Simulated assay, not measured.
Amino acid sequence: MTAVRPGEIEGLLRRGPDPRILLVLVYGPDIGLVADRSARLVKGMTADPDDPFALVKLDGDALASDPGRLVDEAGTIGLFGGSRTIWVRSGSRNYAPAVDALLKADPAGARIVVEAGDLQKSSPLRAVCERSSRALAIPCYPDDARTLTELIENTLREYGLGIDRDARDLLAQSLGADRRASLSEIEKLALYARGRDKVELDDVEAIVSDVGASVLNALIDAAFAGRMAEAEREVRRFRQEGLDPSAMLGAALRHALALLNARLDDPSASASSLVANWRGLHFKRKGLVETQLSRWSPGALRHAAAALQEAVLACRRSDAGLAQAHASAALLRIAGEAARRRG
């Protein structure tokens, strides 16, 4: 199995995989991104959407009970001829034997997309796919600043819209770590700006910078500025609003990396000059961000980013209540560390 490099994924989704590839495994911790990429692959690979036999959807748990069914479905000819697309969605049971039998049988005239979750390297499904030269893997990890920028620009382009740089930067800061939620916000913004050529900063502030975004910014700024009492208050408010803990951690991680990049771009610059050149930063946040830049060193920011990444993984392995606890604890640890750096 060949894993697609991050920079090559969008190109592959547009043109489709090599015809010699029988099966594409889409997996990773970002379930929204897994679902989005699987759906795009299936759409591009299905020859005739009007043929009810051209696309078959199978449940992984059903395949675990009947491993031979996947081979049978792949070998069935469509009603109007041509190739078939089979879309497998994972359940809770191990259906790796069904995939193993398919790859060994190598049926002609079928393309398979397997939509999986966050698979460890030792998982049976990954192991089976990695042994085959006819399997391809698309890993899906939470969006970083670069992929969020691409997502914003590409999605708005589909609606015939451009976007100002300041508006794009603010929008990226407002989005969470889940691709499905991010797409929903971008599409909402596109509908708001319909009939115009470009999305501007006022549009983003009106539509995306809602209660969730304002709570999130207040929490992140309080934490990185070392304002412990404010951070504790905003954590409680975040939980009362019922907001997504992965959004909290994703936004905090992007902010830590933005602080780090600002510091590394011009190590000798003062915090005030770095803030003055920070595009897309809302004027109400500038004072707090200046405090943060004066308090955090590049090494400390790298450590904070690593801790946030660990918290993201812990959240994705936990139920909703425990995920909230992991996210809250991570932000309060950052607030405590920033408070110790007061000077």
Score class of each variant (00 low, 15 high):
G343F: 11
V114T: 05
E153G: 05
N261Q: 11
V56K: 03
V4P: 07
R165D: 15
H303P: 00
V204R: 09
A193M: 09
A307C: 02
S182Y: 03
D59S: 01
L274G: 09
A137P: 03
G60S: 04
Q292K: 03
R168Q: 08
E158T: 14
V215P: 03
D50N: 13
F224Q: 04
A74Y: 00
Y27M: 12
A213E: 09
R317E: 06
P17N: 05
D50E: 13
G75K: 04
K104N: 14
L219Y: 01
S38H: 07
A35Q: 14
A320Y: 12
Y141W: 13
A320L: 11
L249C: 13
F224S: 02
L288N: 10
G176W: 09
S297N: 12
L63A: 00
L33T: 03
G336R: 15
T76P: 01
A116N: 00
R168D: 01
G81P: 06
L293V: 07
L148F: 10
S297F: 14
V42N: 02
I220P: 03
P139D: 05
A213R: 15
R180N: 01
V34N: 12
K198S: 14
A305V: 01
L301S: 05
E10S: 05
R69G: 00
E310P: 06
R146C: 08
S268H: 12
A105D: 14
L308S: 10
V26R: 00
A225Y: 03
D166M: 11
E10R: 07
V71N: 02
I77L: 15
R89Y: 04
L136T: 01
G160Y: 08
I112S: 01
D221M: 06
P245T: 06
E337Q: 14
D118R: 02
R279E: 14
F283H: 15
R236F: 05
F283R: 15
F238P: 08
Q120H: 13
E10D: 14
L41M: 12
R194V: 07
V235G: 04
R126I: 15
D118T: 02
G226M: 11
A338Y: 05
E232V: 15
L79G: 07
S270P: 12
S83G: 06
H303Q: 13
I86L: 03
G250K: 02
D48A: 09
L161T: 13
R84T: 05
L55M: 03
A213T: 14
M45W: 07
L260K: 12
E10Y: 00
A193I: 07
A229M: 08
A251H: 02
A252G: 14
L281Y: 12
E310W: 10
D106G: 03
D265Q: 13
